[in-house]
Amino acid sequence: MNKSLIVWGLVLVMGVLGSAPVGWAQEAPQEAPETAAQPMTQAELARLLVNLLGLGRFLPAAPTDQQCFAVLMENNIAPADGWQGEEIVTRALLARLVVQALRRADEIENPDDPQSWIDFLEGLGVSLETVEDATGELNPMTEPIAPNVYRDASSTDPLQRRDKFSGETEVHFGTDVGYNETVRPLTRREVDRILQEAVRRREARRPATPD
């Protein structure tokens, strides 16, 4: 327990100290309105979508941009020309991504026309005035696609890898996997019990001595 507290404490203290030179504590109150007025990048939107669609549980605690792009693409959510993290989000792109996240991309009449995505979304009554308005209708996805079980089990990073899953009910890339069925080896008591049982059976099968 003490070790845990020390590590958690160190992480928090170092994080705060690490940020001190850039003076976030002083800047934060002033930065908020400026930040709100700044255009959003595709990387920032991807991070927001990952949260709103419930995909964050498949990624590390602080995922990279590429990890966010990959999990969105696995669920068919991507700009027409692919994710470009530093590019600015346009209305048409926002409309496209939100429609894809709503799982209604197949209803777009002309997918090559950016205006079609905007018209469709506005037809649903969704405003594109702000990102918050546009993404307000998004819910966590029903069984999203993610290679979470095997990727977590396969990871070499002790901050990410995991070997314990929920038996027969974990879903991996849209399938029901049985990863947890790698059976635990027997304990010493269990082995002793099996050996005793084997002896008992052998004795029970021993033929009677002929007269």
Binding site: S19, V22, W24, E31, T35, G167
Partner: peptide, 19 residues
């Protein structure tokens, strides 16, 4: 997000399984 430069991310995964 504490500031544009600093964020705190917490993730907890709990599983209760029966076999």
């Amino acid at each position: 997000q504490f500031s544009p430069r600093v964020s705190l991310n917490f993730k907890d995964t709990f599983r209760r399984a029966e076999l």
